Amino acid sequence: MAETDTRTPRERYRAQVRAEVKEHAWEQIATAGASALSLNAIAKRMGLSGPALYRYFANRDELITELIRDAYRSLADVVRATAAAGSGADPAAFAHALRDWALADPHRYLLIYGTPVPGYHAPDDVTAIASEIMATLLDACAALPDDRPAPPAAPAAPVTRFEEHIERHRGWAADHPAPPAALRRALAFWTRLHGVLSLELAGHFTGMRFDPALLFEAEVADLTR
């Protein structure tokens, strides 16, 4: 049975206007980038005055925050669904879910992983959503066996200098209990996969005559070997 909408007519109208504002904002971002986002231009497109639009979004930063929040929530939903489908301990499934999501809406991906919007700082709730996504990757990487050979008669491979460093600087991993080797692997996944995706979506592979999907697949295979 469908849920009953308990909002008042005014609340429903407000939600509709905010959704329309965000649609126009995404169109602006697709055309000129997030740095060129203009509430006044959106108001003109919608036949509203600037002051009227500010009743729905107090300023440009609030609108950008809402777009970024929506983007992170969308990716978090995809990551959560991938884990729930039985692939939670499979970094390759995480990687392909990320690529599929990015290709479905490149401007949404580039808003949160592309060039930072000058002067913008994400609020705590947005950072929390991003941390949830990272936690899922850390879960998957922690479930993988250590990829380094142990020296003779040693119980485990030695900790590298970088692993020692990230063990002391693990704020980005929040309270996740992943060991240093899993932290290292998660960072390798995060940086290498986003590197390929960012270059692909920005068009830097155009004219190089190779399939970016195969490059991405090769990176995933190398990271999970």
Rank of each mutant, 00 (worst) to 15 (best):
P51N: 13
H176T: 09
G207S: 09
V78Q: 09
E163R: 12
R185C: 10
D90Y: 03
R55P: 01
V17S: 08
P212W: 13
Y54L: 15
A173G: 03
M1Y: 09
N40H: 10
E167H: 13
D222I: 14
L53S: 09
P180N: 07
W190R: 12
H107K: 14
L197C: 11
R108F: 02
T82D: 03
H194C: 02
S49K: 09
Y56H: 14
L137S: 12
R73F: 12
N40W: 05
G119L: 09
G47S: 02
L48C: 03
P155N: 00
A58R: 15
Y120D: 09
E66F: 00
A52R: 15
G33P: 10
G114M: 01
Y54I: 11
G50K: 06
D100P: 00
V126E: 06
A84T: 08
T224I: 09
H121Y: 01
A30W: 02
A41I: 00
S49G: 15
A92M: 10
D61M: 05
L193C: 09
R192M: 14
R69Y: 14
P51M: 14
Y120E: 05
L137C: 14
T65V: 11
R192P: 06
A81C: 01
S38I: 05
Y54R: 15
A2V: 07
A93Y: 03
A93Q: 10
E167Y: 02
T65I: 01
A150V: 02
P145Y: 13
A92Q: 07
E200Y: 03
M1G: 15
E23A: 15
Y109F: 11
R7C: 10
A213N: 13
L67G: 06
L214W: 07
T160V: 01
Y120G: 04
P177A: 10
A221E: 13
V117Q: 06
L63V: 02
T8M: 12
I42R: 14
P106T: 02
A85E: 14
L197G: 12
A150F: 00
R69Q: 14
L67V: 08
L63N: 06
V17K: 04
L63A: 04
L197P: 08
A104I: 03
Y109A: 02
P118D: 13
R73W: 08
V79H: 00
M134C: 01
A178S: 10
L201D: 04
L144T: 03
V79I: 15
V126W: 08
T191V: 06
A104G: 11
D61V: 00
A25C: 12
D139E: 04
Q16C: 03
A36F: 05
N59P: 05
P116A: 09
V78H: 11
K22H: 05
S74Q: 14
H121W: 02
S87L: 08
G207H: 07
H194I: 03
P149I: 06
P177K: 11
D211L: 03
D77L: 08
S74K: 07
A182T: 12
F57A: 04
G203E: 09
L111M: 13
L199C: 13
D61F: 04
Y109D: 01
G207A: 08
L187R: 11
R225V: 10
A142R: 11
A104T: 07
H169L: 09
A173Y: 05
A93N: 06
A188W: 05
G86P: 08
N40T: 14
I29N: 05
L144Q: 14
T31N: 11
P145N: 11
D70M: 07
Y113H: 15
G203I: 02
L39Q: 06
P123K: 12
V21T: 12
A32I: 09
H107C: 01
A43E: 07
